[in-house]
Design a protein around this nucleic acid. Structure first.
Lengths: 184, 184
DNA sequence: ACCTATTTTGAGTATACACTCAAGTTTGAG
DNA sequence: CTCAAACTTGAGTGTATACTCAAAATAGGT
């Protein structure tokens, strides 16, 4: 949409403002007014670059979903430890995006067309990837059992992430490591 | 607030309408208009019984939080199995309340004054209760280790609940039992 | 049957929201 | 330097929201 440098900069400012507002107060806090104020931009300028407010929100959410899984090409070779470490790293290094990620699923359809479905599809892909890594680590593991274990391990990680989103003081990394040990 | 029978009935209708709307579409779906339409009540009648829309929402959320922990007097005697079973039963028998429960934490402050804090307090109480049951089951377990285990087990349960809220076909009960086995 | 407290109605208010547009300014390729 | 395309502005639109209120209807104790 943007063709000039200023346009690209404005676009970036808007995305950044949207991301921080979503992280701080969820969808309710990310009003057009607050986004424009934080980005130092007027409404008309926003609509010159985005078709709707949802478009900006979706961009941020997609960015979050992608960021939790930084190396999609690594599938088939990474270890369980690496996968868990990537998840933990995402939450400790990108806390804002992480909150958006956790919120995305439950905010429901209001966060865009089928945000829940997209989220679920992403989850299922990750289950496969975890299960695959588990199978490679333990040759005796049956495929069904690997899937079950993967759902459980991802369940803990999501649960701990949820817990952390309630209370930023929660020692997410330590518990994630405890969980990884427990489920191997 | 209500003094006559009709008033109590109207109150119940409103709470029921609010609960189902929250479960179906979250806070966004629970507008005053939709609540009143579903309860077959006009706005003025709503405000004769409730001071605000939030009051009705908070009532439903509190009901949900209480329902996940049905026997607070049992603390100190119940087993881990019983606690897990209660959690699972809540999700399978009261799916609507369960969804509201999972949503309550993340909808943030918009769902009432300090909904997150209340949710967290409740969580910490449950961690204590789980840790206590675990200690009784295994005399060698150190208090700190018991707390860690309790956070992990509740983490899985919350994570699986989260997963189930994305996809109602998810076999929540089976996975919860698989998780419980790991901690015995 | 009476009479007051309670409940219901439905039109009405104020506000916040996402979004538009015509007019002016800036960018940068040729 | 020129000029069209890209960007910005800021007042303005329509709509949905939570909430109010005076007046009419009903409940239920006496």
């Amino acid at each position: 949409m943007a063709r000039y440098q200023v346009g690209l900069q404005t676009e970036a400012k808007i995305i950044e403002a949207t991301k921080s507002l979503l992280a701080e107060g969820g969808l309710d806090a990310a009003t057009l007014k607050s986004i424009c104020e934080r980005a130092n931009v007027k409404a008309g300028s926003f609509y010159n670059l985005f078709d709707s407010k949802e478009e900006a929100v979706i961009r941020v959410v997609q960015e979050a979903i992608k960021a939790v899984d930084p190396d999609p090409d690594g599938a088939g070779t990474d270890t369980v430890d690496e996968l868990v470490a990537a998840y933990v790293r995402f939450f400790t290094e990108e806390p804002q995006l992480a909150k958006v990620y956790v919120m995305a699923a439950l905010t429901g359809e209001s966060a865009g067309d089928g945000a829940r479905r997209r989220f679920l599809r992403h989850h299922l892909r990750r289950v496969e990837r975890f299960a695959d890594a588990m199978s490679r680590a333990d040759g005796d593991l049956k495929p069904d059992a690997a899937t079950d274990d993967a759902e459980l391990l991802l369940g803990v990680l999501d649960g701990l992430a949820f817990r952390w989103s309630l209370d930023a003081d929660f020692e997410f990394a330590r518990y994630a490591n405890l969980a990884a040990v427990r489920f191997l």
